[in-house]
Design a protein around this nucleic acid. Structure first.
Lengths: 357, 357
DNA sequence: AGGGGGCATCGAATCGATTCGACGAACCGA
DNA sequence: TCGGTTCGTCGAATCGATTCGATGCCCCCT
């Protein structure tokens, strides 16, 4: 494998000159540039990433920290990982995928061994151990998901609260009085997953002042069990009919999106005849069955923005901490900012209007 | 950030001694080992990956080459990527995710710049440009998917042909005479995707000698269109009833798995009353609706094996080419071997037996 | 004619680990 | 007591780039 010395020799210049040709940090004459380029082509030269990194302490790699709570499979992790990778490539970075059972361990190792310039943190909890890790190490990072402490690090997220509120408001405006909010699983709520708590809060907020009532139920991964819960809420009516029968269902759990129609069929319910169904957080292009009204999760947008935020943080840290050891943590704290994506309620094949009175 | 020199100084030994403590390549006294360990803990030392790599030319990174044909979203890519990452971590490697529109470009860059020790290639076509790239560069690689040239590189795959044949045979044995094989999309067949071609071939093979007839139809991503095709094949009967009505449906397209039940509902078909449905290549735990009889795609197994193959190839190449420049390509050609996973037909909630005569 | 200032390039130091040859000490057998 | 091992450690070279100070050259202005 040829090195920069070989190229220099072949072109009749010094190695440093070849380096300048590559990264343009000093002026180079057109003639020299051409000769170097010829040598590069002739020898098939490609710079060794490790040498480059060792000297310049830049890796051109972004780490994606993907926590993997044992056994759980998440429908959105994969698309997100791929979208972040695409975004990174567009910005001239490669992506290192860090999955570890222990949420913080892999991330700490990657940061300490200098494998990446910045990190993107997925599936953020309200209080997330990884946030403490990157702050302690003064490692540039950006989050997909809105943490409780909004000023700790740059982040971007869909405005889940407004998404849920929007769905409730629109359904109320269309005449629904009783709705069911099928929220993420109880485990996710107990784990203080940001999007789960905010979605539920938004549903309550959206109902306020409309006169509509929203009952929160929790999803499970098993379609049959979802069907059973739906039946309990919508058909058998535990309260014996003291309240009106719900006419709208809002589904936030990603794994339930896939099979909600099947679960409804199992429960003996049809849409839109018996129930208007709105999906929140649908992965674009991933909707099973008929196109339901929905708020999509803007995967590409979020991935693009979070990657940009991470790169910006890395750049800011590199440029502003030269010679100032204290600047790092301070900088990460108030750098770069946040981006909350406003939800849009997309129409489906079925209307929002309430089923017959 | 402390370096190996700082640790050496703190422990009162030479840097080389610290290195030996870390990677155990020479005997170290218990006393020295303890002192070094203390210094490491006291200073919070962690070796810099780039320096390590530069000197030893080992990265402890595996690249995952994930081709992204523009616009197509694949339900299995994400789970595979995550599973390969898990497997890599278990073997002491990190995973670099390489997605590029142009299938070979990212891979070539990663190999040439020495970012990884080996590559795992996903979504392999029968003839795949990336195979030529890694062979040309003598870069250790293993494939998920069975290429036409089986001896070019190590690979592992589900035996799709046998999976389809198995499903057909079992259905025939249960009394079905006419079946529909809902295969991957026409684009995938035209692109010579390995699993698509082999599945279709297997369906034909499985029918041989059983007296059963298998009609191949192609899936599409749009559930409504799938419903229309099912109706054409199973209800409206283009041939005007010259043949018996199909009683079994085998679904191989991963995106159709999600919504096959909804599509059937739309087509006015029920299972098992009207039609026995078998799914091939289901992602474990991802089945929507009732648990249909199925051959699962052993994602964890395949990911684990392909990672092992890639690491083995890297090790073999490193150990056997010392001083022998010609050995590389030759070694990759006949090293390590293949692993074809035998399919298992898992029972669902519904039996395989034919609907009423 | 002489001095000042850019421009283009060179040479050498440097990043932080690994690895190999050498060397002192301890131990063994003859 | 002496030569030969073995064990544990050291020192120095090395991997392949980047980066900075120095330098030569040409041009322009006074």
């Amino acid at each position: 494998m040829p090195t920069i010395r070989d190229v220099a020799q072949h072109a009749g210049v010094a190695p440093s000159t070849v380096s300048y040709v590559f990264n343009g940090s000093r002026p180079i004459s057109e003639e020299t540039r051409r000769r170097v380029q010829e040598a590069v082509d002739a020898l098939g030269y490609h710079p060794r990433a490790s040498a480059r990194t060792l000297r310049s302490s830049r890796t051109h790699v972004i780490a994606l920290a993907l926590p993997r709570p044992a056994g759980r499979r998440n429908a959105v992790d994969g698309p997100f990982a791929i979208a972040v990778s695409d975004a990174a490539v567009r910005l001239g970075y490669d992506l290192l995928l860090t999955t570890s059972q222990d949420k913080a361990e892999g991330l700490r190792r990657v940061a300490l061994s200098g494998l990446a310039d910045a990190a993107v943190l997925m599936a953020v909890d309200m209080e997330d151990a990884r946030i403490d890790v990157v702050r302690e190490l003064a490692f540039p990072a950006a989050l997909i998901g809105r943490p409780a402490d909004e000023d700790a690090l740059p982040w971007t997220d869909l405005d889940w609260e407004e998404a849920a509120a929007l769905a409730v408001r629109e359904l109320a405006a269309a005449g629904h009085r009783e709705m069911v909010y099928l929220a993420p699983t109880e485990e996710e709520v107990a784990g203080r997953r940001s999007y789960a708590l905010r979605g539920i809060a938004g549903a309550a907020r959206g109902a306020r002042g409309t006169g509509a009532t929203v009952t929160v139920a929790h999803a499970v991964d098993d379609p049959a069990e979802v069907a059973r819960r739906l039946r309990g809420l919508l058909v058998e009516r535990a309260d014996g009919g003291a309240r009106e029968r719900p006419t709208a269902l809002i589904v936030q759990h990603p794994s339930a999106h896939h099979h909600i129609l099947t679960s409804m069929t199992d429960a003996g319910l049809r849409t839109p005849e018996d129930l208007t169904v709105v999906v929140i957080g649908a992965v674009p292009g991933d909707l099973s069955g008929r196109r339901l009204p929905r708020v999509e999760l803007p995967v590409e947008t979020l991935a693009g923005e979070v990657t940009r935020l991470a790169v910006t943080a890395a750049t800011a840290l590199r440029e502003n901490t030269a010679g100032d050891a204290e600047a790092g943590p301070r900088l990460l704290a108030d750098t770069v900012g946040h981006l909350l994506i406003a939800p849009a309620l997309l129409p489906g094949d079925t209307p929002l209007t309430a089923p017959r009175a």
